Amino acid sequence: MSTTESASSRYATLEDWSSTDLVAAIVEGQFAAIAAVQAASAPIATAIDQGSERLARGGRLIYLGAGTSGRISGQDAAELPPTFNWPYERAINLMAGGQGAIFRAVEGAEDREELAIAALDEVDVGPDDVVIGLAASGRTPYAIAGLIHARSKGALTIGIYNNRGGRIGEVCDIPILIETGIEVLSGSTRMKAGTAQKAALNAISTGVMIKLGFVYRGLMVEMRPTNVKLRDRAAKMIATLTGTDYDTALATLDAADGSIKLATVMLSQSADRRAAEQMLDAASGNLRRAIGP
């Protein structure tokens, strides 16, 4: 069986290859990683559907991982607030060895089952939460113990792993096996396996946000315009959605204190700020329900 820990005779003389051949082999692995994610599209879709139901009730996305998996999940969690205005306290990354391990490896932390349980208890994991555990090997004690504990508390548990037979798939509600196989560097799961995990998380978190109404006509209408570039992007979104000119869109964005949704309702419905806020409140913040398709 080809696993992330296996070695391939194909790469036995890797150190003698030209740089061009090295690049070709590494990039080939990235293509294979995405193909493996595509093969796992069914359970990923299930994770989106069931995850959005829990989060609609006020739950949180909680990630569990060690090493590369923990760093990848940390990136996904960190990008949800600026992209979708998702509350920081509802995107939690629990990393084996603590947050410092994101930047500097903490050896042996992945074997500490009690650390995962303690971290989940500290955030009071519960039935409305969605807990995603990641482990390329499928047998990382930290992720496995965390998923078992979260499941016992009623949370929806999702396991993402890259080796068939990994125990992580046995202890969660939705197992997502992404068989990336042998790495160019045997056991270096920051490569193919890491790429596959990142793509899977992109699909899950983005899919969930779309289901929750945080996207309208393919645009990030919940985005926070926190810098010049994003302010410009926000004004262009508003102009596109309302058919108005850029300057009017920008001025309305400012009048709405940077809320793309509020500015869009104000312009599309010819409403003042108070009336637009009431429309959004009546639609539970969903722009599509507030102004129609």
Rank of each mutant, 00 (worst) to 15 (best):
M1A: 10
S2V: 10
S2P: 13
S6W: 11
Y11T: 03
Y11S: 01
A12G: 07
D16A: 14
S19T: 15
D21K: 14
V27P: 01
V27N: 13
Q38K: 15
A39G: 09
A47L: 09
Q50F: 11
G51T: 00
G51R: 00
R54S: 03
L55M: 08
L55R: 05
R57I: 08
R60Y: 05
L61D: 03
L64T: 02
G65K: 03
R71S: 05
S73D: 01
A77H: 05
L80T: 06
T83I: 12
F84N: 02
F84S: 05
N85T: 06
N85E: 12
Y88G: 14
E89T: 14
E89D: 14
G98A: 12
Q99A: 14
Q99W: 12
Q99P: 12
G100I: 15
A105C: 12
V106Q: 12
G108L: 01
E114N: 12
E114C: 09
A116M: 02
I117M: 05
A118K: 15
A118W: 14
A119G: 08
D121K: 11
E122N: 13
V123N: 02
D128F: 12
G133D: 04
G146L: 00
I148W: 03
H149F: 11
R151Q: 13
R151H: 11
G154F: 07
G154K: 11
A155I: 11
L156C: 09
G159S: 06
G166Y: 06
R167S: 15
R167P: 04
G169L: 01
E170R: 15
V171C: 06
C172N: 02
D173F: 09
P175W: 08
T180W: 05
E183V: 08
V184M: 07
S186V: 00
T189P: 00
R190A: 07
M191N: 10
K192E: 12
T195L: 08
A196K: 01
Q197L: 03
A199G: 06
A199M: 13
N202T: 14
A203L: 14
I204P: 01
S205K: 06
G207I: 10
V208I: 15
K211W: 06
K211I: 04
L212S: 05
Y216L: 01
R224Q: 12
T226W: 07
L230C: 09
R231P: 08
R233F: 10
K236L: 15
K236N: 09
M237K: 09
Y246D: 13
L250A: 15
T252H: 08
G258Y: 11
A263V: 11
T264A: 04
V265K: 00
L267N: 02
Q269M: 15
Q269P: 10
S270P: 02
S270V: 12
S270Y: 01
A276Q: 04
Q278F: 03
L280G: 00
D281E: 15
A282G: 07
A283R: 03
S284I: 03
R288G: 08
I291E: 06
